[in-house]
Design a protein around this nucleic acid. Structure first.
Lengths: 144, 144
DNA sequence: CTCTCTGCAAAGCATTTGCACATTG
DNA sequence: CAATGTGCAAATGCTTTGCAGAGAG
């Protein structure tokens, strides 16, 4: 569960080195959460206390460029996650919960829109914001 | 074209005052572009040289809360536009062009996804990234 | 021995905030 | 005059960058 061979293989096929810092960052991303650079830093520091935040950002940027990591920004700090499958995001505006949701139809719509506008090499991201059941319930009881 | 009665009416129906600064900001947003706070500041300054950037941000935040303005973040500074119709965005990763595109089907997909996850009061935003015809052409000639 | 990577610290940019004064109803 | 809005400047938060040394091929 922590070997990450599938993911690491991606890095090894490039001119980039798979250093212990980079391996640790990839491992930190494997649990599937939507982590901020700060959180990743904390996690990586457990193993490698000397790693700097700058390295986290530099590495995440490389991983994104290669396509191993997906970024997701929505107010405040950016969130990073391993790019395993294509999915979209459902965000609760009250508690901040982020849920990954599949929605394959979006790609088709995006493609049609792109072609209409003569855009190529496209990618589409849908973000749905709203209230989760729990937060909607609390709101109904006046707890904002 | 610059009276903005429709938009101003929204502000007037709240407890907020329609000051000359706020009116100028609303007017600046009326040409339909995707402006940064900085750009709005420059435009408003033409009429009201003393307006501060802080006021721009404070006002935009109120307008967003009321629903008169729509924000759109995609790397770098946030973009603001009048919330006239519901639309999505098509962004060229090379030149930064942002095109408004209709895609009414997205709302239905988002609603279904939200219901599956028991989310309520939702809104959906789709962002398509890619290369516009012009930039794709330049790339083909090795001009990055 | 060259090229890449890293830590550190400083800089950068976008945005928010505290406060005293101005403005409005 | 009580409440809201504003300018200014400082503070904040996230991210990027320059540089000198460490490490890998």
């Amino acid at each position: 569960m922590t070997d990450g061979k599938g993911v690491d293989a991606g890095l090894l096929q490039t001119r980039y080195r798979l250093t212990k810092q980079r391996a640790a960052i990839l491992r930190a991303l494997e649990d599937g959460a939507h982590l901020t650079a700060e959180t990743i830093h904390e996690r990586v520091r457990v193993e490698l206390p000397a790693v700097s935040l700058g390295t986290i950002y530099r590495t995440l940027d490389i991983l994104r460029a290669i396509g191993l990591v997906q970024v997701f920004a929505h107010g405040g700090a950016a969130r990073y996650e391993a790019a395993l499958d294509k999915h979209h995001h459902l965000v609760c505006v009250a508690c901040g919960e982020i849920v990954n949701v599949p929605a394959p139809q979006v790609a088709a719509i995006a493609l049609a829109v792109a072609q209409d506008n003569r855009y190529s090499g496209i990618d589409a991201a849908m973000v749905i914001t709203g209230r989760c059941a729990r937060c909607a319930g609390l709101a109904r009881n006046g707890l904002s």
